[in-house]
């Protein structure tokens, strides 16, 4: 492969990863924007999304990469899997907010964040204990159709992942910008007390933010499985931390920032792995996390700055 082909191939891979990270980063950003809370439970919600997607596909008769579908059955199966993952994770997010975070809403300090670590631990250990530590073969019904651009390979599934990520992101963007609830959400993020006095039901807004963010994490979990053809209890932590870095890089609390940050982190991961070394990828990503927080805490597009204390 020529150097340009290699580069192009890594950009293709990076954009696919980036789409997934962006979906996951949106959840961090939505919740941070409103509650100023870093939600570690999001890691495990994503993990559950991946497993629910896998179990749904298996329940629909798919097994590994043996069953290939086309046309309407393929669309139906994918729709069912995405719907199952997203609804389950959305509800999971709502339950987490209602029962473990709402009681702590007015408690200062790191208490709420520590709680989300605990919730995350509970959720991923249920998977670990229930499904085991081995890597799971993820069902993938997509036909092996490849496009060639300048020698680089573009799989059909990558195109699909791009389309799905784009649709979900645009959908969220329209929801936040255009809908009545989206407006209430932005108002709550700016000033919850003022929003409450204007008649916004802040508790409901928070629940909906958790639902939307968690549902996107569910979709991202399924995309992870479709992209890599595997899933495992460990992915919540590794992918979650990268997506969190993406949210910070774009400017946490900022919806377009999460999308840009996600794509950038995806590209950094694939290009860094190619041109530096895979074993240093995490060091690069976490160094970016530290450097952004220290030198530009508002991120690339950020509006919400961490206040000095």
């Amino acid at each position: 492969m020529s150097p340009t082909t290699v580069f192009l191939q890594q950009v293709i891979n990076g954009l696919s990863l980036g789409g997934m990270y962006a979906l996951l980063a949106l959840g961090f950003t939505l919740i941070y924007g409103i509650l100023e809370l870093i939600n570690f439970a999001h890691f495990s919600v994503f993990l559950w999304g991946s497993f629910i997607g896998m179990w749904t596909l298996e329940a629909l008769g798919l097994n590994g990469q043996n069953v290939i579908l086309t046309g309407l059955p393929l669309i139906g199966v994918l729709l069912a899997a995405f719907l199952a993952s997203m609804v389950f994770c959305g509800v999971l997010g709502v339950v987490i907010e209602r029962f473990s975070l709402r009681p702590l809403r007015n408690v200062t300090g790191p208490m709420a964040m520590i709680t989300t670590i605990g919730v995350s631990y509970i959720l991923f250990n249920i998977i670990l204990l229930g499904a085991g530590a081995d890597t799971k073969n993820f069902p993938n019904p997509l036909p092996e159709i490849q496009f060639h651009i300048d020698g680089a390979v573009l799989d059909l599934r990558i195109v699909l992942i791009w389309i799905i990520s784009a649709v979900l992101m645009v959908g969220l963007w329209l929801f936040v910008q255009r809908s009545r609830m989206g407006k209430a959400m932005r108002a709550t993020a700016q000033d919850a007390d003022a929003a409450r006095m204007m008649g916004v039901e802040v508790d409901r807004v928070i629940l909906i933010a958790f639902f939307a963010g968690s549902a996107l994490a569910g979709a991202a979990g399924l995309i992870f499985g479709l992209y890599y053809n595997f899933t495992s209890y460990i992915i919540g932590y590794t992918a979650g931390l990268r997506a969190f870095t993406a949210a910070v890089l774009g400017g946490i609390g900022n919806v377009p920032g999460a999308m840009v940050g996600g794509l950038l982190i995806g590209l950094i991961e694939s290009l860094g792995g190619q041109y530096i070394a895979v074993k240093w990828t995490d060091v690069i990503i976490f160094s970016i996390l530290v450097l952004v927080l220290v030198f530009r805490p508002t991120g690339l597009l950020g509006t919400l700055a961490p206040s000095k204390s």
Partner: peptide, 19 residues
Amino acid sequence: TLRLKGDYLAIVTLGFGEI
């Protein structure tokens, strides 16, 4: 990390803890 408030501080330490 000194300029950062609580939760950001936690993330930076998490980053170093990974590195």
